[in-house]
Nucleic acid binder design. Structure first.
Lengths: 229, 229
DNA sequence: AAGCATAAAACGAACGCTCGCTCTATTTTA
DNA sequence: TAAAATAGAGCGAGCGTTCGTTTTATGCTT
């Protein structure tokens, strides 16, 4: 699958994300009109991601956020009820979006090799489109309330599980060598994460997301495949 | 090489690190007696790593640090001249230690395959011993002064370069397939970093650092090696 | 060995400032 | 013209940092 194709069939826009966020959290958002809410929520969340990914969420002050969004402190607090609340909404919405997109794409494919490719492409392409979200979720998890760490761990293990199942399937059908499933999934996850954590490096070297996906499949193919099939 | 062997020949202790740090920064440290300085610098830096790796350097207050170390605010400021200064010393010393250990180990080996194994083991073993330092350097780089980002990038590319050279050598002698050198080094780096970034995961699964090193060599071996040699 | 003088180290209250957050007045929208 | 949205001064808490003081260690004299 090409990146362009993926982009076309992703099925949600930035506006959709913020519309959903607005409707889900109408209790704590004091703004009534959807159109106004979406417009400014987008400004607030985009600015939060931008500032936080530059210097960290806890180093971002709400005055930073106010000047970046062009909203006053008072206005800001009509959209969020606290700074912690902003963090919570980011995590919640981020995880929902990622989860939904991942599950949707890899269902309905049979061949382990094709499923593996599709899972890798989906992860990479989604992280390409939503790089600030992915980066934020990765780097700021520790700032979140300790009780919520479980969710972060679950989420890490969930995506790893997708790969575990695919590899197990491949091994049981004889298409893959009998490798260490847990370790293999772990390094796949690590390589996928490198794409959004070290964007600057790949950008500088003009490696496209398709190049990177192809390269990962090469590496994994040579490791997983039986010598002569 | 076994992890135990590496540990034995590493050639410096925790005390050595703090002694060097003391001597290098005697200008900004107001403490005179080496013994006292080393003892408390160790307390301060260990506590900083511990608190920061839990909730982030910028979320750590000096009062946190004071109560964790058992030193008063005033005493703290006899050892550091500012919070930024503490960050700077951590980065400086961290990079020196890592750099020195890496360069030392991989010199004097000829075979590309052995050099690759040695480089991987050295990285992993060192990050196993100094996990809090590695984790800190990775996660807190963005909090550092922007001018210092160059150093962080250099340091990332430096370790990648070690692998690039090894792989290029292997290709030119015909022992490795002609793969994409830059991308291959990049994913090696990513897999090495996963070891100290996701310690909890590997601990939980009781994967030892030797297991992990062996696994990486397996994966890379199958990718780099000519089909029939 | 004890007493004493001085240097070294530790203490912690206090300072100025910025933080997250609130509240009332004002402007914009429909 | 009433409701919705924004503005921004102001609040107390907590931040990094300083500094006058107290405690501890060291070396010298008797």
């Amino acid at each position: 699958m090409k990146f362009k194709t993926f982009k076309g069939q992703i099925g949600f826009s930035k506006e959709d994300i913020y519309r959903e966020l607005f409707k889900e959290n109408q209790a704590r958002i004091r703004i009534k009109k959807e159109k106004t809410a979406i417009k400014n929520l987008a400004r607030i969340f985009d600015a939060t991601l931008s500032i936080s990914n530059d210097k960290g969420f806890s180093a971002m002050s709400l005055r930073d956020l106010s000047s970046e969004t062009g909203l006053s402190m008072g206005a800001l607090y009509s959209y969020i009820s606290s700074k912690d609340d902003l963090l919570e909404m980011l995590f919640q919405q981020g995880r929902i979006v990622v989860f939904r997109a991942l599950v949707k794409q890899i269902s309905g494919i049979d061949s382990p090799r094709d499923r593996l490719r599709m899972a890798i492409q989906t992860h990479l392409y989604l992280s390409e489109i939503m790089q600030p979200w992915f980066y934020f979720l990765y780097m700021e998890t520790k700032n979140f309330r300790k009780e919520e760490h479980k969710k972060a761990i679950e989420s890490e293990l969930f995506t790893e599980n997708i790969f575990q199942e695919i590899i197990e399937q491949g091994i049981s059908t004889g298409q893959f060598r009998p490798v260490d499933v847990a370790l293999t999934s772990a390094i796949i996850k690590a390589m996928l994460q490198d794409w959004y954590l070290k964007r600057w490096k790949y950008e500088r070297r003009t490696v496209s997301v398709e190049d990177y996906a192809g390269f990962l499949m090469e590496v994994l193919g040579s490791y997983l495949h039986l010598e002569n099939t």
